[in-house]
C-alpha cells in the first residue's frame, strides 16, 4: 500500500480553535484514497480541572439569573472531551468532512462511492489537502496520527 502522507503531532489546550492543513501531491489518478486518523486521549480524567472549565463555561454562556442552578449540576457535563475532525479538499473542490466523535476513524474515497461524510468522485492528480479542525483540546496534551495511502480496491 503506497503511502502518500504520514504525520503525527502534539496539541495543547491553546491549540483549540485552530486548523492544521496538510497538503500533498498525487502524481497520477488513483482508484481510491484511504485515510486513517486517530487521536488520544479522548476524555479528560482531571476532575477538578474539568470542574473549573465547566464553571467558566456556565459563567460565560448561561444567563446570570440561571447560573446558580447550573453550577449545582456541573457534573452533568462530565466528562469533557477533545474533539478533532478532518475534512478533505481535492485539487479543485471540497470533498467532505467527518464531524463526529470517535477518536479512531478510517475513510475511503473513490470514484463511485465514499465513506459517510465524503463525496464520491475521481481521485485526480494534483494537490490534495486534509485539514484537521481542532475544535477543542481539554487535556494537557493530545497526540494525533494521520496517514493517507493509495486505496487498494475500487469501491
Amino acid at each position: 500500500m503506497h503511502e502518500l502522507l504520514a504525520v503525527e503531532g502534539k496539541l495543547y489546550p491553546s491549540s483549540s480553535k485552530t486548523h492544521i492543513t496538510y497538503q500533498f501531491h498525487i502524481p497520477t489518478p488513483l482508484p481510491s484514497l484511504q485515510i486513517d486518523f486517530q487521536y488520544a486521549p479522548k476524555k479528560s480524567e482531571d476532575k477538578s480541572g474539568s470542574r473549573r472549565l465547566i464553571e467558566q463555561s456556565i459563567e460565560q454562556y448561561v444567563h446570570p439569573s440561571m447560573q446558580a442552578a447550573y453550577m449545582d449540576k456541573w457534573e452533568q457535563y462530565m466528562p469533557l472531551q477533545n474533539l478533532l475532525t478532518i475534512s478533505v479538499d481535492d485539487p479543485s473542490e471540497f470533498r467532505g468532512s467527518a464531524h463526529r466523535h470517535p477518536e479512531k476513524q478510517s475513510y475511503l474515497l473513490a470514484t463511485s462511492s465514499a465513506s459517510p461524510g465524503f463525496i464520491p468522485g475521481a481521485i485526480l492528480e494534483g494537490i490534495w489537502r486534509i485539514t484537521i479542525s481542532v475544535h477543542c483540546v481539554v487535556t494537557p496534551d493530545c497526540n494525533y496520527l494521520l496517514r493517507v495511502t493509495e486505496g487498494e480496491q475500487h469501491l
Binding site: S16, K17, I54, S57, Y61, Y77, Q81, L83, H135, C136
Partner: peptide
C-alpha cells in the same frame, strides 16, 4: 444560547 466550548464545541 446553547452551552459553548468545551461543553459543546
Amino acid at each position: 444560547y446553547s452551552m459553548g466550548s468545551p461543553i459543546c464545541t
